[in-house]
Simulated assay, not measured.
Amino acid sequence: MVSRQVIQQSSTDMTQAQDERRGNVSPSNKRYYYRTYGLTISSQLELPELPQAEAISQPDVVVLTPGVAEKLEGATFRKGWLEMGDDRCQITIEGVARYRVEQGQRILLDRRVPRGDDTVADPGDIRLFLLGSALGALLHQRNWFPLHVSALNTPGGVWAFTGHSGAGKSTIGAWLHYTQNWPLVTDDVAVIKPHEDAPYLHPGPPRIKLWKDALAALGIQTEGLVRDMTREDKYHLMLNKDVQDQPSPLKALVMLERAEEGEAASLERVKGMVAFKSVMATLYRPEMGTEFNTAEQLMRESIKLAEKINIYRFRRPWSLEEMNTSIKPLLEKIMQEQGAQE
């Protein structure tokens, strides 16, 4: 059912893109309302990936579609696609769009970033970066603590998985979601709000990014899925059921590592400096964090979070064929946590 809905949305996107190229779509003042990260968003652009919200007069964030200057005025940081300075940043994705993010409250989106003969990018690609890097910058501007994790609401509370690029956080999150029927909280970014007493994890857009072999192992067809623009064999799967969109206390953070050949899967709790470094390594786009916060503030929040949750190191064989066996230490610990809560 998920694949059919994805295919339908892809067809809608294609029709919209064709209409825009023909000049048949005029600017609209209509507003669409959504919620994500505990924020209410008013947008001139339809965002079908997000849960809808009631219209309100003072949303937390507005997404507008005017023209945007090619360069961010007064930028103190410029590196490739990213410019930052003075509570603002600008993200330019060639052939897709230009995004200006201001003061944690507003995203200005300019779709006129041509590549070759195409003057307008595919709407799905435009939303991909809006819901990813642009919203991530906005979270940092609000002085929140965004984490790059895959997280699920397990019987032992909310557990989040992280690791370096390619560590398999999306794969293990999807595997547990589909095989254990645990609601997915997030598979990319979720945010901790420092002003809250407990470390509540506020989920972002309900999507999973999976490699082609992981999709095949889970029996999910790639037809109709959005292909990742930077990795040819990775796909974006939007979910609209068994997804949790309300904040819940984060119970555990799991650092994923690859086991050596012949090494059995193992789960080990870590503390102290190792735990602190694990949290710091989980911060989403740290270059944005250090621009809109201070290094001292980020360290304080990392220490505070490391003291309030359990942090583990999980080493497992890389073979998907062994996944059901290798996740057993993880499942056992989660069930132990469930028993302790009852």
Rank of each mutant, 00 (worst) to 15 (best):
R227I: 12
L253G: 05
P249S: 02
L237W: 14
M255G: 01
V254D: 01
L253K: 07
E268Y: 00
L218P: 12
Y235F: 15
G272D: 09
A217S: 13
V274Y: 03
Y235P: 02
V279H: 01
A281E: 04
V270L: 10
K277M: 13
K251C: 08
R285H: 11
A252H: 02
A259V: 14
A265P: 08
N240P: 01
A216N: 13
G219M: 09
A265D: 11
R285Q: 12
Q246E: 13
L267C: 06
A259N: 09
Q221F: 03
E260L: 08
G272M: 05
Q246G: 07
A252D: 01
M280E: 15
R269N: 04
A275Q: 05
G224P: 07
A217I: 00
R258E: 15
V254H: 00
K277W: 06
L218W: 02
E260G: 14
E263A: 14
K271C: 05
A259F: 05
E287A: 14
A264C: 03
N240S: 11
K271R: 02
L237H: 04
E287L: 14
L218T: 04
Y284F: 15
G219P: 09
A259I: 11
S278C: 13
L237F: 07
L267M: 03
P286M: 03
V226Y: 10
I220D: 06
T290R: 10
T222F: 07
Y284Q: 11
K277N: 08
G289I: 08
M273V: 12
E291A: 01
V279M: 04
G224W: 13
A275H: 02
R231E: 15
E261R: 15
S248T: 09
S248P: 00
E263C: 08
P249G: 06
Q246N: 07
N240W: 04
E257A: 09
G289E: 11
R227L: 03
Q246I: 06
Q221R: 11
Y235S: 02
A259P: 07
K271I: 11
T290M: 10
R231I: 09
G272A: 12
G289V: 10
E223I: 08
T282G: 09
K234C: 05
M280R: 08
S266A: 13
P249M: 12
E223V: 10
T282W: 06
E263K: 10
T222C: 13
